[in-house]
Design a protein around this nucleic acid. Structure first.
Length: 567
RNA sequence: CGGCGAUUAGCGCAGUUUGGUAGCGCACUUGGUUUGGGUCCAAGGGGUCGCAGGUUCAAAUCCUGCAUCGCCGACCA
């Protein structure tokens, strides 16, 4: 490709609404342009990269015999009514009507459509196991789209679905998919971690997320410094502290306090946050007689609502109740003392003695409170977020916490959808069996942003070879004044093209500085500079975008040198 | 959904307090100059100042409503 015939729309200035570096660079390098909140047009350079990601994903899916299909983005409501998700899904689901006033939706995911396909097309156990995938545009009406294509409303996703007669078969496909995902992220040159994950609203049993480690990530990942253990903080287990609770040494005392901020309130009491607890009022589930459940964690810890929601006593969906609206009591004064309903106490808080807590009256706190004597514990449970330095639940090492960008997620769905949508086959014994399912997603467009988060410097993007929009670029110095330079550049361009190298020939009538900075911004990994300076010796200059040091090459060596660098 | 803020040329912004001819930098076009790291000079094109209504002799500027976008929070794969 000649840059004079290419749309190379680079920007010097950073658009003001781009916060994270990948968003800034994608705009500056002319990869995407915003159409509306969370909606982007992929321009030629951006699309080239997106297609590279798709290519790797597609190849690895094919390598485990997953079959590619393409399902519609617009889906009829009746299938979603059948699975129950028409009602379960919130405003994130964009619903629309056709001209006959029939209900449709823009697909955020495709379990219903694939279930509909498989129940019609697959009728015998002999056709199993079966894995199908597609690379499709999804739509989720995110509350707050941000960070460019990292969290867009419309995005490209690879989604795969597998169908099995037995759990063992599902486990087998799940393991294959897990391995394929590892190969994909390795080939894409990403620093990633598979982590134990929450199954979220899609439901099911086992689940792993694949995270690209980056400070701009939106998820906290906890991982052990002594083993391979890694989990989303939502899921990472906080081990109960060892040892016995100390015996009470203080009497319960009442204190008038000012303000309603925990830290400010503790200071005059001379109580450390580790020696105090905070309480949360949540709706109780039907299995409990009380209306509310009280959740208690140590004041320096954070409540983990994913864990709390899984408690039998707590209503799902998790609903935090504002005690001010219910009892005219500010949340900070909620108290386990004299609370009538179930009191679920985090292990660390349950370990405390002589601690401080709210008194159940506005403006009053207790010190010297002790469990059993002053307040009951219904059950000690794990309902807090782990923090850095906690012992790893795997038993080896301590936890560290890093930010991650979720780029892949695999689930063992079980029979959630196949039951609801009656997906089954006749087994060997002639009996009807409901299938068990797995589903496996990769955020294809998000990967583009994630890769930039990991591969950039102050001049622009530094693409790994497998992702770069072009593999090599030829930058001629003053070609429009020098016939020799032009001739050599043209010759190299032809040679590289003939060898199948994706090469950009910067034949614009621009000053060298402009070309250098544009090509570095766009991030083309291999640069050839053709200039009068070296032509007398029959040489040109080679520079790798990442390493940066310049090497002189004989003109004849260029093509093979680039080929070697790429392999 | 709640709080805050923004909306003026393709991009980044000034002008709004105190109403009176629409500005700057980058980008773009033309000519010249320069040529191994975003040259320099000159000339030029491009705007219903987000939309609608109101006040006024006169509104980018004051008032009202709406829309869009962003940030923080809550929520959510």
């Amino acid at each position: 490709m000649r840059s004079s015939q290419y749309l190379l729309s680079t920007l010097k200035e950073t658009p003001s609404d781009a916060e994270v570096v990948s968003h800034q660079l994608m705009l500056r390098a002319g990869m995407i342009r915003k159409v509306a909140a969370g909606l982007y047009t992929w321009t030629p350079s951006g699309l080239r990269v997106l297609r590279k990601v798709e290519k790797v994903v597609r190849e690895e899916m094919q390598s485990i015999d997953a079959l590619e299909i393409l399902m519609p983005m617009v889906q009829p409501a009746d299938l979603w009514q059948e699975s129950g998700r028409w009602d379960d899904y919130g405003p994130e689901l964009l619903r629309l009507k056709d001209r006959h006033q029939r209900d449709f939706l823009l697909g955020p995911t495709h379990e219903e459509i694939i279930s509909e396909l498989v129940r019609k097309e697959v009728s015998s156990y002999k056709q199993l196991p079966l894995t199908l995938f597609q690379i499709q545009t999804k739509f989720r009406d995110e509350i707050r789209p941000r960070f460019g294509v990292m969290r867009a409303r419309e995005f490209v996703m690879k989604d795969a679905y597998s169908f099995h007669l037995t759990q063992e078969s599902l486990q087998q496909s799940y393991d294959q998919m897990y391995a394929a995902y590892c190969r994909i992220f390795e080939r894409l040159g990403l620093d990633y971690r598979p982590v134990i994950a929450d199954t979220g609203s899609i439901g099911g049993n086992s689940s792993h997320e694949f995270h690209v480690l980056a400070s701009s990530g939106e998820d906290d990942i906890a991982f052990s410094d002594g083993s391979d253990y890694a989990a989303n903080v939502e899921m990472a287990e906080a081990l109960p502290p060892k040892g016995e609770r100390a015996t009470p040494a203080m009497d319960k005392q009442e204190h008038q306090v000012k303000g309603d901020e925990l830290a400010a309130l503790l200071q005059p009491l001379s109580v450390e946050a580790q020696q105090a607890v905070k309480c949360f009022l949540v709706e109780a589930s039907d299995s409990v007689e009380a209306e509310y459940v009280l959740l208690v964690v140590r004041a320096d810890h954070e409540l983990n609502s994913v864990k709390a929601e899984k408690l039998e006593q707590v209503a799902s969906p998790f609903n935090l109740v504002d005690s001010y609206t219910t009892h005219e009591l500010h949340n900070v004064f909620l108290s386990p003392v004299d609370f009538s309903g179930p009191i679920m106490v985090d292990h660390a808080a349950a370990q405390l003695s002589d601690f401080a807590c709210g008194a159940g009256r506005n403006g009053v706190w207790f010190t010297g409170v002790n469990w059993q004597r002053d307040a009951k514990i219904t059950e000690a449970v794990d309902i807090r977020n782990v923090i850095e330095g906690d012992p790893s639940p795997c038993g080896q090492g301590y936890l560290k916490i890093a930010r991650g960008i979720e780029v892949g997620h695999i689930f063992q769905l079980g029979k959630k959808y196949s039951n609801a949508m009656k997906v089954g086959v006749l087994s060997e014994t002639g009996k009807h069996e409901t299938l068990t399912m797995g589903c496996y997603g990769i955020g294809v467009s998000r990967i583009v942003a994630a890769a930039i988060e990991q591969h950039h410097d102050d001049r622009g993007i530094c693409w790994p070879d497998n992702l770069a929009p072009f593999q090599a670029v030829i930058i001629p110095m003053n070609m429009h004044k020098s016939a020799r330079v032009q001739e050599t550049a043209e010759k190299l361009y032809q040679q590289l093209k003939d060898q199948g190298v994706e090469v950009l020939f910067d034949d614009r009538k621009e000053r060298p500085g402009v070309m250098f900075s544009d090509m570095e911004l766009v991030g083309i990994p291999h640069q050839i500079v053709v200039g009068e300076r070296n032509l007398d010796e029959g040489m040109v200059e080679y520079q790798a975008r990442k390493a940066g040091d310049k090497v002189k090459l004989k003109i004849e060596q260029v093509a093979s040198h680039i080929k070697d660098a790429l392999s």
